[in-house]
Amino acid sequence: MQMSELDELYQELIMDHNRRPRNFRPIECPDREANGYNPFCGDTVTLYLKMDGADVADVAFQGSGCAISRASASMMTEAVKGKSGEEARQVFDAFHEMLTHPPDSEFEPDDALGDLEVLSGVSEFPTRIKCATLSWHALRSALDGGGETVKTE
């Protein structure tokens, strides 16, 4: 296929998470819940958290969105499950840095990112960065206590 940049955006792993999103379900009686909304494209996400002390015991999401936003949410749930709230925030920071670092600057992916690194191609598509970060903002809001709908704008 000649569209190599497109393939970099839509990596196989991303397509797989889009088709079969992990932890795509509600959590009964979650400890925390947060909504995300991207007014630009209408994407919505609801994020559920079950905590075990300071740790993320379970995390799941629902909502509607594009392949990038769905895959990002799905992979996020896998990345932060079992981590402490503090560790989850660090993954958030590393992920955010990966997508928003200035194009010419050096960027060393954080080990904590693991599979999430396949989403690094999104940084080449400025109009799509918000798709990838929507669920992450919802996660941070949930870690902070939830409540308000977070918007990407």
Binding site: C41, D43, G65, C66, A67
Partner: peptide, 9 residues
């Protein structure tokens, strides 16, 4: 296919 993905394609 989400319209946004289609638009990028």
């Amino acid at each position: 296919i989400h319209p946004h993905d289609l638009g990028t394609f």
